[in-house]
Simulated assay, not measured.
Amino acid sequence: MSGDAAMADREAAIGWCIRLDAGDLSPAEHRALRDWLAGDANRQSHLDQALALWAGIEADAETPELIALRHEARDAMACAAARRPLAVLRRTPWQAIAAALALVAVALAALLWQQQGGAVYRTGIGERRVVALADGSRLSLDADSVVSTAFTDQRRDLTLVRGRARFKVAKNPLRPFAVHVGRDVVVATGTEFSVEALTGEIRVGLFEGHVAILHDAGRGPVATLARRGDRLVPAERALVPGSELRLAAGAAAASITPLAAGDGLDEGQLSFTAEPLAIAAERMNRFAGARRIVVAPAVADLRISGVFNAGDSDAFAQAVAATLPTRVETGRDTLTLVAR
């Protein structure tokens, strides 16, 4: 069986799982299920995996957040069935249903996740690295970054220990892909996104697909909220491809901004738009050569805009001094920006 056909069967199994959980099947639905299972010997295994995952969620994660996510998955199935009654169970595209179940699995993974042994990938200052992960996903590490992995048959857990990384996720809705940053977790089943850990802030850039973003303040994981106009909505609805979520420590909601041009991990440049000087310096320091940039507290919140060559700390410091009320104090291995 081709990879696409196997993936379609896994997604169909998710739909059947949700339908079975919702109540008794009609005689016509029973026949449709038997026909579907008879079509390939591996389908029973796919369905068993989906049912086992769903049963684990029911048994071990009876929190309000997970109950709401289960209802969301069932609602997605009901809407699909209303549009295409029985045919939906035979040949529907299951993306929306798979995404809904993935959210449930993601929340369960966030509740039960503990750091396990696994591979650790790291880069030094000024170094970038691309890694092919065991599941077929691709990890692109920015400079001075560390990511650890803990993969099991049920889930794919990664932790961004430091820095920034971009993930191109191999699709598998039955095996969520979760990136942990402190108390926050970013999850996808098949998509491309980046996660960056900064002092007092995390950032999630979305290149394609969609992700769920959860936060655990000590009472269990809940959906992160983001501002969209004058409303607060779940971050996964506000974050669209080509945008970036910024979540400051202690903030009630995240903000959404466009992804800066030239802000990928391959261009050799860093682009800032009204960036706090302390954060811009922190990002530049991942590429610092002989001297690192230090920002005095008095000027840390000044905003800088521009495109800078990664690793050229001297040019960055001089540009800041020329455009903001700062001056540069040069040390043996530091460039300190202080108030002018």
Rank of each mutant, 00 (worst) to 15 (best):
R10K: 15
L337K: 14
M1Y: 03
M284I: 03
E267I: 09
R122T: 09
A274T: 08
F167A: 05
R155N: 04
L20F: 11
E267G: 12
A278T: 06
R155Q: 11
I213H: 12
R231C: 01
T323V: 01
D142T: 10
L47A: 08
A261R: 15
R156L: 07
V294F: 08
L69V: 02
A109E: 12
D35P: 00
P64R: 13
A165R: 09
D24T: 10
D75K: 12
S45W: 11
A319T: 14
V131N: 11
R34Y: 05
A261Q: 13
G220T: 02
L302V: 04
A170F: 07
R90Q: 15
D24M: 11
A96T: 15
F151V: 05
A132Y: 10
T63I: 03
P234C: 01
E282I: 04
A253F: 05
V320P: 05
V146F: 02
L214K: 05
E275L: 01
F167T: 10
R291G: 03
A197H: 15
D4M: 08
R129M: 05
A260V: 10
L33N: 06
R175N: 09
S305I: 06
D263L: 02
E72T: 09
E208D: 15
P258L: 00
L206G: 07
E127D: 13
A61K: 03
R156G: 01
E267A: 08
R34M: 06
H46G: 02
D266L: 07
G3W: 08
L37E: 09
R219C: 02
T191K: 12
L89R: 06
